[in-house]
Computed example of a mutant assay.
Amino acid sequence: MTSPFRISAYQVAEWGQMTMCDAERRLLANALLDISNEWFVLVSESCIPIFDFNTTYEYFQNSSQSFVMVFDDPGPYGRGRYNYNMTPEVELEQWRKGSQWFEVDRDLGIEIIRDTRYYPKFKEFCRPHCYVDEHYFPTMLTIEAPQSLANRSVTWVDWSRGGAHPATFGRGDITEEFLRRVQTGRTCLYNNQNSTTCFLFARKFAPSALQPLLVLAPTVLGYG
């Protein structure tokens, strides 16, 4: 079952289809028209910022890399989705997987929207159950600009409950302890240094989470 959402009155994007990547490319293309925009972050309606604006801005400003999750999954949900018709543009050892929730700078944003080399291959040969939005950008950017990638996302999700989608959090889940754990519960590399500030956004939050989030935002998240 697909979950379509409208980008405009005439264009529909569907989960797992190339139309998802088309929508993301259109969003980037429009944002790039404003020359004052330096960084571009893709989040969903179920995401929340977990730090104040200044912290988030400085994190991107001072980073030497962009935050696109990229990893090589040798199993059936990674390399198992590869189609050998992707050669010679994409070889099996170049095939990557990642989250669609990314942050890129202008250079990578331009790289994404101007691509005509990899797009036709992914459109034709990465079809359900390939889930092109999990592979196209991670693979293409790894080939073209690997040094520009931190190989991780700045959007926190919880896959520990199992299933095809990450956990959704509602009113009963929102506590100060939970939010603090999301903010600093992991260690990562930031500019080649260990850091406990690994995420700037988190998902998925249900509408019922809004009220307790508003209560805790000023003291825990630093805004509101």
Rank of each mutant, 00 (worst) to 15 (best):
F122Y: 09
F122A: 09
K123W: 11
F125R: 05
C126M: 10
R127Q: 13
P128N: 11
C130V: 08
Y131G: 14
Y131T: 12
Y131F: 14
V132A: 11
D133G: 09
D133R: 04
D133F: 04
E134M: 06
H135R: 06
H135I: 03
F137E: 04
P138G: 10
P138C: 09
P138L: 06
T139W: 01
M140D: 00
L141H: 02
T142M: 11
T142I: 07
I143L: 08
E144Y: 07
Q147Y: 08
Q147V: 06
S148Q: 13
L149F: 03
A150K: 05
A150E: 11
A150D: 11
V154A: 02
T155M: 06
T155L: 06
W156Y: 13
V157I: 14
V157N: 06
V157Q: 07
D158I: 08
R161W: 11
R161V: 11
G162N: 08
H165E: 11
P166R: 00
A167I: 01
A167Q: 04
T168A: 15
F169K: 01
G170A: 11
G170Y: 03
R171D: 14
G172V: 04
G172E: 08
G172S: 12
G172L: 05
D173K: 03
D173G: 15
I174L: 12
I174A: 13
I174D: 08
E176L: 02
E176A: 14
E177G: 14
E177Y: 04
F178S: 14
L179V: 05
